[in-house]
């Protein structure tokens, strides 16, 4: 695995995504998703909301890096808040 040039932070990042996917799979088996309409302009499943939350998080970080020199941890916090909001209310 040396060729993949792993670092601690990137390993933690991918582990978090893997855990998220595992939780999503387990949730789906236990409580099958239903399509619902929240504040997003499209009806979404749980998986859709997870994808939107991840994509939003990525773009919040990109916007943050493009716009400011402030610590990225703030963007990460903002992303988590937005992600929870999307998962629960979208």
């Amino acid at each position: 695995m040396g060729w993949m040039a792993w670092t601690g932070p990137t390993a933690a990042f991918f582990a978090a995504i893997a855990v998220g996917l595992a939780i999503m799979t387990a949730s789906e088996l236990r409580w099958p998703t239903t399509v619902r309409k929240g504040f997003l302009p499209i009806p979404t499943t749980r998986g859709d909301r997870f994808f939107v939350a991840l994509l939003t998080s990525a773009w919040v970080h990109i916007g943050w890096l493009a716009a400011t020199e402030a610590p990225v941890i703030i963007a990460s916090g903002l992303s988590i808040l937005l992600g929870v909001l999307i998962l629960l209310k979208a």
Partner: peptide
């Protein structure tokens, strides 16, 4: 994943 790993390192 490898590309992401590379992107945060000076190789």
């Amino acid at each position: 994943m490898t590309v992401v790993n590379y992107s945060v390192q000076d190789i």
